[in-house]
């Protein structure tokens, strides 16, 4: 455990900050339709929150928050949400990803708006899962770090 990881100030600040960063990430994903933001940015910010936690508390603690199996499930689930939204449009008689063919609400533009939000959520889930798994894979394994110190 390095010096910066033992600092009480950093550990406390990170523990307080992480939920707020996650909340901001959800805001960015849901606000992507009416302002700057969207699935990629929100997903990356959410991933960055968990990466921050894993950097300070250690990879093993981070994996308790986001285990490998959950990570794999989320990464495929986001892509499936996206593709399923496109296929649902075919089921209702439109073309692939032709949102306004879905006859759920009276206004086709409103249906399109909600389906775009759904697609953004799918992108966000994939991006956050992949970013976290990239960090866990690229960062040095904890056993190696301990050995190098001894």
């Amino acid at each position: 455990m390095s010096k910066i990881q033992e600092s009480v100030i950093i550990r406390t600040v990170v523990r307080i900050m992480v939920p707020f960063i996650e909340l901001f990430a959800l805001y960015v994903i849901m606000h992507g339709a009416s302002g700057p933001g969207g699935g990629f940015q929100g997903g990356v910010i959410f991933g960055a929150a968990i990466i921050l936690y894993a950097m300070i508390y250690g990879i093993a603690e981070g994996k308790k928050k986001m285990s490998d199996s959950l990570d794999r499930i989320l990464a495929s689930a986001g892509l499936t949400i996206y593709a399923a939204t496109g296929l649902a449009c075919i089921v209702f008689g439109g073309m692939f990803l032709q949102y306004n063919a879905v006859p759920l609400l009276s206004d086709p533009a409103l249906v399109s708006k909600y389906l775009i939000d759904l697609v953004e959520i799918g992108i966000g889930i994939t991006v956050l899962a992949v970013m976290i798994s990239l960090f866990f894979d690229v960062s040095p394994p904890e056993s190696d770090v301990e050995e190098a110190k001894e």
Binding site: G38, F40, D137, V138
Partner: peptide, 20 residues
């Protein structure tokens, strides 16, 4: 460019994995 930035970070990650 929004598409390209995210592809850029993917290629960077794969390149770094190959470097390791």
């Amino acid at each position: 460019i929004l598409t390209a930035i995210v592809v850029a970070v993917s290629t960077t990650a794969v390149a770094l994995a190959l470097i390791i």
